[in-house]
Write a protein that binds this DNA or RNA. Structure first.
Lengths: 355, 355
DNA sequence: CTGTTAGCGCATTCAT
DNA sequence: ATGAATGCGCTAACAG
């Protein structure tokens, strides 16, 4: 291949079949090919067939870069999560991806790892790729970054967990019925002291956290149940968790139920309870946010307040694509929901200990 | 800005600050701005400062579309997974994302959902976006699609689980030591019949599956242990699994250990064992591929063969970016590893039942 | 060291 | 119904 003496250099990489190759092969102009490919504008049935055959033969796929440059629409969504290690993001991401795929959109992921610097860099990358919308999967480290992007014209949508006001459905609203049901059940069973166990506090505090806790506290208090907030530190060290659990339960009037505020925390607490020889549910009842096959498999099976993150992801993506004019209409698909699933880990509390 | 009578229409969307705005603001040419932004080519310290200030002031970020169009390098990686519902992909994806981010690359995700049609469409999208490399996270529904892309010049890299030959490290190689250790332990404990439990067969069969099974069978057989392959169907229906377990164990010479071939299957089996009142580990020992906090929390704690998918993801991404000339060198970072973690769910088998 | 110029692949307008 | 012409934002070659 002799280098041509043109001013602009030919980029490296494989030749790549462009719209011009197709046009030449089909004996039409590039404009016609473009019209056929995008489905906009006129094209007779005959030429359409010819073009499509050429496309097929050459394996032509329009370049998203070129199209995006020309149209300022990249057919790309960005998803920013605070911690990709959190398994709840998987179904959420999945929901987003499925809807996006159905409408020809691509999905870029970004994991801020709870670091402002990383978040900054990730957002830069997403913006550089001109994502048409940014879905924020959880709380943001530095709201200023987002504000800047928002002013720059980027559409920002927050998942139910992400806090802020621009949420389609608030996490609290979704969870409220299930939380009330669970708290009512605890009270009905006779519990009068409940520990609300959270992981180490994050900075900034997870909005979800406070909304949940507030509702739990309110609901239980109204029913005459005292709530004791417990912050579990060093959750990666089983021994620390175990001693914390011992300390919590070795009191004159210990809580008779543990409400675990975050699913990833649950197995760690259960392990500590087992290590501390605490009988479930005889000595304490156990209930956690978030479900998994393991929670159901555990003996006793663990009661849960479960959210359908997949549907949440779908719903958020639907809404965004509708806003972008890329999806027909949100439709009245199943709204995101939360359910309370009482299981064997919740039971009547032991008789009150002597004072 | 008065609309110019040019032929090309102005695309919709927010104005967006381009390289020209920066150039004007800084009083230099666009070429100079480009040089400063990309770090390639000369630029005096003074002008560099001026440009950077203008960039900062205007909030300019180069458009990846335009840059990609011009350079044929999109700074984008694609990750194709067969089933985004599988939790192992989370750490893997995380590893890829972290390395990509560190080198300014974006990550596009695609979930084929084990459907050829979806896969086809997903690959089309990834190709349209001209991902510089495609990381395949698991087996592919239709190898032809991949072959086509590969011929089109796309770099395809397969994760250890993805089968094929172009893998940096084969899953079997990574897992071999741990598998041998686990099998040896089973034999040493006195087990003579082991059930190897898999989920419903996939089409095409997961390569990982057969490689694992072959090694297990071979290792156990050599040590005088019989292996009984069991395919569990209808894994979403607890009752079906329970009856299958009952059937498996209600035989004259039942297996004394269950080896679960896939982590998502484990909680379902454990639930069925509990429902069938099978004592663990007294009546049967239990061992599974894949680890999670829940496996450690279960009582008895579940023995596992664990792989470090995060490191695998990092390693794959490192390698790809190195191949692309975007990362310095793979370095001799920790290689992906698998470990066998014996836990309480493995014990001496019950005395042989009378014939 | 910096500016001018051309063109990457595509969608669009306008003329035919 | 189709083609010619234009420019989206950016970078690479070249001239100065």
């Amino acid at each position: 291949m002799a280098p041509s003496p043109e001013a602009g250099a030919r980029p490296a990489g494989p030749p790549g079949v462009t719209i011009r190759h197709v046009a030449a092969d089909a004996g039409v102009s590039t404009a016609t090919v473009s019209r056929v490919m995008s489905g906009r504008g006129y094209a007779s049935g005959a030429t359409r067939q010819t073009v499509l055959q050429a496309v097929e033969r050459l394996g032509y796929r329009p370049s998203a870069s070129a199209r995006g440059l020309r149209t300022a629409r990249t057919a790309t969504l960005g998803v920013l999560v605070a911690n990709l290690a959190n398994p709840v993001f998987l179904p959420f991401l999945r929901g987003v991806e499925h809807v996006a795929e159905a409408h020809g959109y691509a999905v870029l992921i970004a994991d801020s790892r709870r670091s402002r610097d990383v978040e900054r860099h990730e957002l830069d990358t997403l913006y550089a790729h001109r994502v048409e919308a940014l879905i924020v999967g959880e709380s943001v480290e530095n709201p200023e970054h987002l504000a800047t992007l928002s002013e720059a014209g980027l559409r920002v949508v927050r998942a139910p967990d992400a806090g802020g006001e621009s949420t389609a459905w608030s996490a609290a609203a979704i969870e409220a019925p299930a939380i009330v049901a669970a708290c009512t059940r605890l009270a009905d069973l006779g519990h009068r002291r409940v520990a609300y166990v959270t992981g180490p506090a994050t900075r900034p505090p997870a909005p979800r956290g406070s909304a949940r806790r507030d509702l739990v506290v309110q609901t239980l208090t109204v029913r005459g149940v005292a709530v004791e907030p417990v912050t579990m530190r060093g959750t990666d060290d089983p021994d620390r968790v175990t001693s914390a659990i011992r300390e919590l339960l070795d009191t004159p009037r210990p809580p008779t139920a543990l409400l675990c505020a975050a699913h990833p925390l649950a197995p760690r607490l259960l392990r500590a309870l087992a290590d501390a020889d605490v009988a479930l549910p005889e000595r304490v009842s156990f209930l956690t946010f978030g479900d998994s096959p393991w929670a159901a498999a555990y003996r006793p099976a663990i009661a849960v307040i479960r959210r359908d993150a997949y549907t949440e992801g779908r719903a958020v993506a639907q809404r965004v694509l509708y806003d972008l004019g890329a999806a027909p209409e949100p439709g009245s698909a199943d709204p995101p929901l939360a359910t309370f699933d009482p299981r064997q880990s919740m039971a009547t509390p032991p008789a009150a200990a002597p004072r």
